[in-house]
């Protein structure tokens, strides 16, 4: 009762497709060889991260906190243990209120979800940061974010295409439900929590200038709860990292200026 598969079947299954594919396969090689020698390669793909101008706002929804837990929001510079400067923030229990007040504390709802908006201090130095939400009991969740100079522009994404577009209250992030699938939304997950955020420029209505961009440096979290970036420690010494960290802000300014459109036109001789 051990029936062997006939190769005829395999041959037949392949026959028709082969007539389409064999010749292309062979000739595509020739096509490759015949191609002009001047070719291009733009920047390689990068992970989507958020960009916000100094003085702008961050709208967020995070899940996985304890019910009714008090959650503190902060902007943490990467490559440094110092916290960022003062921040305006909303009381935003459950979200829906305007960004206001200096204490960036929120309270999770009965489901452990916290949402609101966070205003980036106007004098925040440009550079890579982590937007971090820390619960009193359950730990933190953070997402990478680049702060640009005041009025710094993002790229073409997130220009009001988010789920809160046309929000009636003009301030609610309305990042309700599944924020995935909306351009300009950055969402991260880990150790039982998720965080979705979107940004807006200072003095503008939410959703009008939400941005994401490409960021050369990654490294998701530098808090005590979450590990540092994905650059392995062996790549450089601690001293080097401090130096690199100091330069990172400047680097990020340069990097963020490289928009997607501009990258498309970057040329490098390749073969």
């Amino acid at each position: 009762m051990m029936i062997k598969s006939s190769p005829w079947r395999a041959a037949l299954a392949a026959t028709a497709a082969t007539f389409v594919a064999v010749v292309p396969l062979a000739t595509a090689q020739a096509a490759y060889a015949d191609a002009p020698t001047s070719v291009y390669q733009p920047y390689p793909p990068e992970l989507s991260t958020a960009t916000v101008p100094a003085g702008g706002v961050i709208y967020f929804v995070a899940e996985g906190f304890e019910p009714r837990e008090v959650v503190t929001a902060a902007l943490v510079p990467q490559f440094s243990t110092a916290l960022s400067g003062s921040s305006r923030s909303g009381d935003g229990e459950g979200g829906g209120d305007k960004c206001k007040g200096r204490d960036a504390t929120y309270r999770a709802n009965a489901m452990g979800t916290v949402s609101g908006c966070f205003q980036v201090p106007k004098k925040t130095p440009p550079g890579p940061y982590l937007f971090t939400l820390t619960g009193e009991e359950s730990g933190s969740v953070s997402a990478p974010l680049t702060v640009t100079a005041k009025n710094g522009a993002g790229n073409e994404y997130g220009n009001g295409h988010g789920p809160w577009e046309g929000s009636a209250d003009g301030a609610s992030p309305a990042l309700e439900g599944d924020a995935e699938g909306w351009p300009g939304t950055v969402k991260v997950a880990g150790h039982g929590k998720t965080l979705a955020l979107r940004t807006g420029a200072a003095g503008e209505q939410p959703g009008s200038v939400g941005t994401t961009s490409q960021q050369a440096l990654v490294g998701y979290d530098a808090t005590s709860h979450v590990s540092g970036g994905t650059v392995p420690a062996g790549t450089g010494s601690g001293t080097n990292w401090a130096l690199v960290g100091g330069a990172a802000g400047l680097a990020a300014i340069a990097v963020k200026a490289v928009t997607v459109v501009r990258r498309r036109h970057t040329r490098t001789e390749q073969g």
């Binding site: 997950a189 880990g190 998701y220 709860h225 979450v226 590990s227």
Partner: peptide
Amino acid sequence: DGRPVMVNQAA
């Protein structure tokens, strides 16, 4: 590498 990390989430 054994240390907690956050990952980007999409669908």
